[in-house]
Computed example of a mutant assay.
Amino acid sequence: MDLLALADFNLVARHGGFGRAARASGRPKATLSRRVSELESSLDLRLFERGARVLKLTQEGRALHERTGALLAELDETAAAIASGGDRPRGRLRISAPLLFSQTAMGKLAALFALKYPEVRLEVTTEDRAVDMVEEGYDLVIRVNPDPDETLVGRIFLRDRLVVVASPRLGRHADDRAVPAVVRETGDLTSGWDVVATGGNLRLAVEPVLRLSSLIMIRDAVRAGAGAARLPVSLVSRDLEAGKLVHWGDIDGPEITLWTLYPSRRLLSARVSAFLDCLKEAFPSGAPEELAAFLD
C-alpha cells in the first residue's frame, strides 16, 4: 500500500473534503483527488461517496480512516520527536469536556498544561453530548458516568456525590409538605428526592419553583434563598464551610464519576499521556475535596 496515498486519504477524510484538505495543507486539490483515486483503485474499494456538494466516507472508508489515521499521526509525531532530539509532547490536542467541569476547572487546567507544554496546541470544546471521537477528530473526551463503549478505553479521574443543600434562611417543614426546589430543565426528579440524612433515610417532597439549565445558576439561586437543590458536593463544599448553605443530606443513589476516554485502537500519544498526567497531578486521589480545593 502506498503510504503517501494513504496519508492523503486521511488528510481528506479528516477535513471532510478535497477543497478544505487542500487549503489546510497547501497541496493542490487535483493532486489529492488523484492520489485518493489511485488508492481506491489499488484496494479495489470505494472510499468516498462523491455528491454534488458533499463528500462522505463509505463504510469501508470509515473503517480505513479509523484504523490508519491514528497510526499515521503517531508516525509523524515520532519522526518529529526524533528529529528534534527528544520526546517532548508537541502538536495539536483536541479535548471535549462537559459543561460544568469546563466552567469550573478546565480554564485553570488548560493554563497549567499550556505553561508546562508550550509546544502543544490545546483546543477544548465544551459540550455534554456524546461526541464521535474519530469522526469529529478528538484525541480525548471527558465524560460524566459514560455509557459503556467497546471502541473506547479510559479511566476514572474524579468522583463526586450529590447532596441536598439550601440557604440557612429556608427552613424545612416539620410535616410532609413539599419544599420549594430549584431543578434542572431536564433530567432532575421533581416528584421527590430520596435523601440520606442524620436521622435516617427519607423521601423529601419537592415543588419546583425554578428550572435552570446550569448547575452554577442553580447554586446561585439556592444561595439567594429561592429553594433547595441537588448539587455536587464539590460545587458547594466551600459554601457549606462558610455557612452560606446548609446540608440537608446526601442523595441516595450512585456516585458521580468523571472519566477520560480515548480510542482503544490507537497508541496513546505523548500529548494525551501528558494531559492525563496533568489531571493526576491536580487530582491525586480523585476525591470531591480535591476538586473543591482546585476551584478556589
Rank of each mutant, 00 (worst) to 15 (best):
P148V: 06
L215I: 00
S213E: 12
V183N: 12
L170M: 09
M217P: 00
R265N: 13
V182W: 08
P208L: 13
L204M: 15
V233A: 06
V206K: 14
G187C: 10
D194E: 15
G253S: 14
N201A: 13
D252H: 08
V209S: 11
D252Q: 11
A224G: 06
R159V: 02
A174R: 13
L235G: 04
P263M: 11
E255V: 03
V165N: 10
V153A: 15
G171E: 15
A228P: 01
R169Q: 12
V233T: 08
S167C: 11
P208K: 14
L215R: 13
A181S: 14
R155I: 00
W259Y: 08
L170Y: 03
V179A: 15
H247A: 07
P263I: 08
L210N: 07
F157A: 12
V183K: 09
N201V: 00
R155H: 07
A226R: 14
T198A: 15
G253A: 14
S234I: 00
A205E: 12
G199P: 02
T257K: 15
R143T: 03
V163M: 08
D160N: 13
D176E: 15
V233F: 05
P232V: 02
T151L: 12
S264G: 12
T190E: 15
D239A: 07
G200I: 09
K244R: 13
D175S: 11
L204G: 04
S237V: 01
P232L: 05
L152C: 08
A166M: 03
D160V: 02
V236E: 12
A205Q: 14
I218T: 05
D194Y: 02
A274E: 05
G199Q: 15
E255D: 10
R172N: 03
S213T: 06
L170S: 11
R219H: 06
L170N: 10
L258T: 02
R203M: 05
G253F: 03
E241P: 00
P146A: 07
V179D: 15
R169K: 13
L231Q: 10
A224K: 14
L245Y: 01
P148E: 11
S214D: 15
H247N: 12
T186D: 14
A181V: 02
A181Y: 10
T190F: 04
L189H: 08
D220P: 00
L258F: 11
R169N: 07
W248P: 02
A197H: 04
G200H: 10
V222P: 01
I156M: 09
D188C: 06
Y262K: 08
G253H: 06
S264P: 01
P232Q: 09
V233I: 15
V236P: 04
G154N: 10
L235Q: 06
S264D: 12
V165S: 06
P208G: 11
A242T: 09
D176T: 08
W193G: 11
R161N: 06
A242H: 03
R219Y: 02
L204C: 08
R172I: 04
L235A: 04
D250G: 05
L210H: 12
K244F: 00
R271Y: 01
L240T: 01
